[in-house]
């Protein structure tokens, strides 16, 4: 390889995508508030371009912005948009019956963590100084997160049916 792999893929990415695609791609999983300047760096676009696209993404609900008088506006992926995206993806992959089964299994798994550590949430464990190894912590947090998406998927499925039925009348 005569060219550094990082330079190669960055050049390819810039060549093959639009500035909007890159900003949206970067924001897709940006969960901590970031400035337009930092986002521009990561998306390989100018700050002006980033700001423009971020405004559009905020307008459409993909991104949430938090402006404050003390510093620059911070942009984050909208949590609602993210949850809906995952819930919709889940519905495309599985039938409701399977979904219900998985939800039950995840709730059982979480119950066992709560019993084992005698706290309701991993965050509470940290507050109380209960020691949980990183592997278990990640597993617990991952299941809570996936369960949230799954529960939304189930609710979404039911609501869609109702709304579509009422639309047909």
């Amino acid at each position: 390889m005569t060219k550094d792999v990082n330079e190669t893929v960055t050049d390819e990415w810039v060549d093959e995508t639009t500035t909007f695609q890159r900003v949206r791609s970067v924001m897709r999983t940006t969960y901590d508030g970031q400035t337009a300047s930092d986002i521009a760096d990561r998306a390989r676009v100018s700050e002006t371009t980033a700001r423009k696209h971020l405004e559009d993404l905020t307008e459409s609900g993909y991104v949430e912005s938090a402006s404050n008088t003390e510093g620059p506006t911070l942009y984050t992926r909208s949590t609602e948009s993210l949850i809906l995206e995952e819930a919709s993806d889940i519905l495309e992959r599985v039938e409701t019956g399977k979904l219900v089964q998985e939800i039950n299994e995840m709730e059982t798994e979480l119950e066992s963590y709560r019993d084992e550590f005698d706290v309701e949430t991993p965050e509470q464990a940290a507050l109380e100084g209960t020691i949980i190894d990183q592997q278990t912590l990640t597993a617990w947090q991952t299941t809570r997160r996936n369960l949230s998406f799954a529960r939304t998927a189930l609710a979404l499925s039911g609501s869609k049916e109702t709304v579509q039925a009422t639309n047909a009348v």
């Binding site: 791609s25 897709r28 999983t29 993210l82 995206e85 995952e86 993806d89 190894d133 990183q134 592997q135 990640t138 947090q141 991952t142 809570r144 997160r145 996936n146 998406f149």
Partner: peptide, 17 residues
Amino acid sequence: EESHALRGPLDRTALRE
């Protein structure tokens, strides 16, 4: 154990991307 020392929950969105 070392390979499981990722901080935070796993990100389904990131994996799909």
